[in-house]
Amino acid sequence: MDVAVDETGDAVTDGAVDGAVDGAVDAFIELDRVEKVFDVRKKTGFLKRERRQVRAVDSISFTVARGEMVGYIGPNGAGKSTTIKMLTGILTPSGGRLRVAGIDPSRERTRLAHRIGVVFGQRTTLWWDLPLIDSYKLMHRMYRIPDARYRENLDRCVELLELGDLLDVPVRQLSLGQRMRGDIAAALLHDPEVLYLDEPTIGLDVISKAKVRGFLRELNTERGTTVLLTTHDLQDIEQLCSRVMVIDHGRLMYDGPLAGLHEVGESERTLVVDLERELPPIDAAPARVVRVEGPRQWLAFPASESAAALVARVAAEYPLVDLSVREPDIEAVIAKMYAGDAEAEKAVS
């Protein structure tokens, strides 16, 4: 079946064929109980070594539809990169079934390469000593991109990523943010249907981050490119992704909209009120005062509750001068989730 599909094949046709076979028409990325077990050898003596198995990815299943933009988050060593490496064909899964655009990545790595774009945040694929444009010319030839297509894609990337003045500059002279934009463009010249980004905003300043995010959003809405990104920067997720997957210890802890993460993590919003004078802590259950500093008080309340009711109540009963509502810090929410997981594990063992 694999042989029958032609190399240059139309993506849509491929998808349809495979969809029909697999019975899931829209699933562009499919993982079914995918596992990755590493053999880790630890030195225990001069020549003695202890072998231990580590489950980097432990039976993960999910599907991503064409055109989705998904954030993949988790602490270091949670299995994020391992998952990305399996999706790109760099690593072979130890178990389970994995398909990207109907292709088994580890078996048909080079065929898949034409249909995916990969950006490794911390490793550039650009040619250090050569002008930026030379790296793009290499992509043009290596991926056999038709001339017109290449020109069109390059022009678009140059315009949106503001690379015009940088094309003739040797890559070694680019700033980190410029290089990242250059790398993203390099990954998109061959019209990939899915773009994987591993930490695309790491180390970038605020302006560069904004440019990268703006571009990715545009890419997703205009071209319908499926985007899967791993990040430590939760603002990336908040601003880009309608769907979040949280992974820890190789297991999928949460898969759903960003808002839902708050409920799962029992997150709280904070109402900050400035009163006319110092007063004892406000009594407005279920909200509770978490901090008092002179006339200013901080009230925490469940993120799922309406702020309006609470504000009305406080305003009616107390001499209110000013107030503001702070949204929950998603980082804290996730940290809480990890902590909960760790406790649960402790309880089991």
């Binding site: 490496k85 790109t88 064909g89 760099i90 790595r109 080079t110 065929r111 390469a113 034409h114 995916i116 990969v118 490794f120 911390q122 490793r123 694929t125 290596m142 991926y143």
Partner: peptide, 13 residues
Amino acid sequence: DGSFDTLLVRPAP
């Protein structure tokens, strides 16, 4: 240094 991975995502042997 991990740059071997970047070669594995290219459509070439």
